[in-house]
Each structure stands twice: as C-alpha cells, then as structure tokens.
Simulated assay, not measured.
Amino acid sequence: MSTLLFLHDVDVLPGPVGALSLLAGDLDVVVPRHPGFGTPLDDTAQGWDTVADLAQHYLSGPAAELVRAPATGPLHLAGAGFGGWIALEMAVRAPHQFASLVLVSPYGVKLSGPTERDFADILLLDPTEVVELGWADPAACRDLRMPGFPTGLTDSEYEQAFADRAALSRYAWKPFLHDPRLHRWLHLATMPTLVLAGARDRLVPPRHSAALADLLPSARFVDLPDAGHYPYLERPDEFHRLVRSFLRGDAR
C-alpha cells in the first residue's frame, strides 16, 4: 500500500481529521505532530528557530524513518498551510524520496514586493478573525484549537494552544511566514505536484497558491469552490476525491 505523509497546518487538531480519515481507506496515512507543538521532542526543539529545522528533522533526524521509502509502495508527501511550507522545504532537499507532492494553501514563499503582504497575520488575529478569514462558512468550523477557541477547553488544552502559538512564533516570525531562500530552489521539486486552495481562503489568497504552482516544474493548480483555508476539514469529500484521483493518476 502507498503511504501518505501529511503535515498539518497550525491550529489543526492532531491525527487523521477531516479528509485524512477518508484517505486512510486508500493509503497508509501518517500524520506526525511537529516538534514544538506537543511532542516528546518539544524540549529538544527549543533551540530550533526555522522551518528548515523541521524539514531536516523529518528527513534525517529522529523522524527520518517516516520518509524512508516503504517496502510496500511509494511515499507521497503532503502539507497544508504551515505544514505545506515544511513539505516544500523537504521537497527541494530530497525530491527523489517522494513519488508526489500535495500542497494546500502553503505558506513559505514570498511572491510579492518587500512592502506587500502575501499572507494574513495569523499571529495577531484573534480566533474569531482566523475562523472568519479561514472558512467559507465560519459556522461549520471544526477540528481547530487555538488560544481562546473553542470555548470550554480544559486548562491543559489552553496551555498547549498557547505553547503551539509560541512555537509558531519561533519558527515563522522573522521573516514572517516565509523563507527568502526557498524561492530560488523551487525548481528542484520535480515530482508531480498538486496545489490546492479554497476559493474563499483569505489567509493565503488563492492567487498566491496559483502563482506558486506556476513556479514548480510539474505542478497543477485546483481551487475548491465554497472552501476556505482548510478544505480538507471544510470540504472533506471533495478534497478526498481530488487527492485520491491525483495519487492514482497523475502521481502514478
């Protein structure tokens, strides 16, 4: 069976939530938690301050076994938002280890001028604003956890939400949500690539994801109507259909 290594966005609950549970019927889906976001390696990762550190962790650090080619089938790489940034850093470093790449509204690459904003400032937005900008239908929001959202979290869940925010700040504050060196190496990500974006995403505008797809050697871009920044949570059936079709066809 093929394996899908899926790297979550920030604020998304651990494990195979949303469309990932559907994809688990077709693939061996591995969904690790990033060091700093509630793992046994959080203390070790205190000295890490770039997304490149996380990419190196998955490629050659303690988690390297996750990306060694499984004996039973090809290994596919996917990431959403912050996880998409990590996946891009991995793809340009080790393109031959992955049969394909799926990116969902990824951060990581700045395409506009130095004074123009590519991404919403998720570190300054309150939870209500994140939901309003990140979901086509904010009333349907689920499977997210951040400081102050949802109401009724336990003390330990609030503590972890704040710890997640602190880790994100350490990895992505300066430069904000991108690596200025990553743009120059995108041509190395030669594997078949699908770039997905919700048409109503206001955290990472769909035009940014479309422009990024144009810079990748073997990528195509698809936008999902009536979805925001988290289409694998908001439109799981459609996301599952698109990704399954891609992995069975284009990425074969």
Rank of each mutant, 00 (worst) to 15 (best):
R181M: 09
S100P: 03
A161F: 02
P114E: 12
P70W: 04
A91N: 01
P127K: 13
L186R: 08
A167P: 02
L133F: 11
L88C: 01
L101Q: 03
F149G: 03
F162D: 13
L88M: 15
A167G: 07
C141R: 13
A63C: 09
E89M: 05
V104P: 04
L66N: 04
F82A: 11
L111Q: 14
G152M: 11
E89F: 00
G152T: 13
R68D: 13
R117F: 01
G83L: 01
S105M: 03
F176L: 09
I122M: 12
G152L: 11
G79P: 00
P114W: 07
A166E: 14
G84W: 00
L75H: 07
L182Y: 07
V92H: 04
V67Y: 11
L177C: 03
L111H: 09
T72H: 14
A189G: 01
V195K: 07
R181K: 12
S100H: 09
A69D: 05
M146C: 09
I122E: 07
P95W: 10
D118A: 13
G84Q: 05
S156N: 10
A69Y: 00
L194Q: 03
V102W: 02
V131Q: 09
A167S: 14
H178S: 06
L186V: 08
R170P: 06
V104M: 11
V102D: 07
A166N: 10
C141K: 10
A69M: 09
S169I: 03
G148N: 11
L75M: 07
A163L: 08
G148M: 11
T72G: 15
G81P: 00
W85V: 07
G79F: 05
A94V: 02
T151V: 13
Q97D: 10
S105R: 01
A166Q: 13
A63Y: 06
E157V: 10
V130E: 03
W135K: 14
H178F: 12
S100V: 00
W135C: 06
E65H: 15
E132P: 06
F119Y: 15
R142N: 14
L196S: 04
A99D: 01
H76T: 03
L77F: 02
L66E: 00
Q97K: 15
T190I: 14
T72C: 05
D126A: 12
P114Y: 08
Q97I: 00
Q97T: 08
P74I: 09
M191E: 05
F176S: 07
G113E: 04
